[in-house]
Amino acid sequence: MENVAVKFDHVKKYFVKRQGLFGKASLKAVDDVSFEIRKGEILAVVGESGCGKSTMAKMLCKVYEPTEGSISVNGMDVTGHTGKKDVSRFRKEVQMIFQDPFGSLNPAHKAGRIVGRAVELHYPELSTAQVRERVVELFETVGLTPAADFMEKHPNQLSGGQRQRIVIARALAVKPSILVADEPTSMLDVSIGIDIMNLMLDLQKKEGLTYLYITHNLASARYMANRMVVMYAGNCVEQGGTDDIIQSPLHPYTVLLLSSTPEPFREEKLEIHASEDLPDLTGDMKQCPFASRCPRATDRCRKEKPENYVIGDRQVKCFLYEHAKEGDGPLVDVSIYR
């Protein structure tokens, strides 16, 4: 545990949803997810919209509390710690980089004030001059130089990439050890997005930061992350090394996800077809969540929910691998990727 920065242990998050006038149901946004992020590591969480990625991020940032299970940060169980002092101390450990840089900045405040406010809240002992000095240092750290040219500007006077650098500077203001990046480049041009990813990688090396990197873009996940978690319908269906998963995916959903990624130089297309039927996340799901779309589904898949099967340093939630052992290859045709 000394080398583990973040641990999700059988975490569930259910939201109460009204059905009709008097009925209620629980929407299972995250359903029994477990994984670890080692200190100094970048873990990517990938999956389609609505799979539970952002809900996991918000639980780690204590926007939501888990319905069940526990979340540990640097060896301390932070589940249920909602006191003002506990939350303030926690905020110094975990900060978030948001998807929409414009929507996450106060348009009425200047950039220097936005970053400086974070410093003032967590370090009230600093003088005005010391706060300004810290803000200048942060602006230079994220590549906004000279800092004086940016500190007096409002968010609408900055480009999308510059706004995202302000968001990163604000996150770094409290000297966190863990950053949660929720699709931080999805609203930026490709070239600007690569600059932001390179900045994040550079900061990770210099500051020893740990990242939970959320994305639907497999290319950016491969560029950024050491390991990967694949989410589907609130479930972690596969996890392991990023290169291993991309080069040799095990779960049928991972294969489907990879097959949907445009590859202009590939003439052939991966032979996997799935229906459009999505699982009902409000029901008592007793079957594999991917069963309705999986071309390899059996009667058992429609009646039972698979466990996490461990194969070497990888995990996969699929009955195909119930008796697999380390060294066994994928049981779904992925030869096109070799």
Rank of each mutant, 00 (worst) to 15 (best):
A291M: 01
V115A: 12
R163N: 09
S275N: 13
H81P: 00
D333E: 09
G241K: 15
K153I: 00
G75W: 08
D333F: 09
S34K: 09
G80E: 08
L179H: 00
N106W: 10
K53A: 03
G312Y: 07
S248P: 05
Q287S: 15
G329Q: 09
Y232D: 05
A108L: 14
S177H: 02
E133N: 15
G83A: 11
V316C: 08
R227P: 06
F90C: 08
L257E: 08
S259E: 11
K317G: 00
T128G: 00
S220H: 07
E152L: 12
R113F: 15
K325R: 14
T242C: 04
A274Q: 10
D86R: 05
G208V: 06
F15M: 06
A44S: 15
N198W: 04
G103N: 05
I336H: 03
S104D: 05
S259L: 07
T128V: 12
P184L: 09
Y309R: 05
A118W: 10
I246R: 02
K317H: 04
D9H: 07
I336N: 02
C301W: 03
R163H: 07
L43N: 11
K269N: 14
E207P: 00
R227M: 07
V136M: 04
T141C: 09
Q239I: 04
F319K: 07
Y337R: 15
L21Q: 07
Y64K: 01
F319W: 14
H122W: 04
V131W: 02
R91N: 06
K110Q: 15
S70M: 02
S54M: 01
G83K: 13
K153V: 03
Y64R: 02
L209D: 10
E183D: 09
A173L: 03
V131E: 02
V237E: 10
P295Q: 07
E2D: 15
A108D: 13
Y14P: 04
S54H: 00
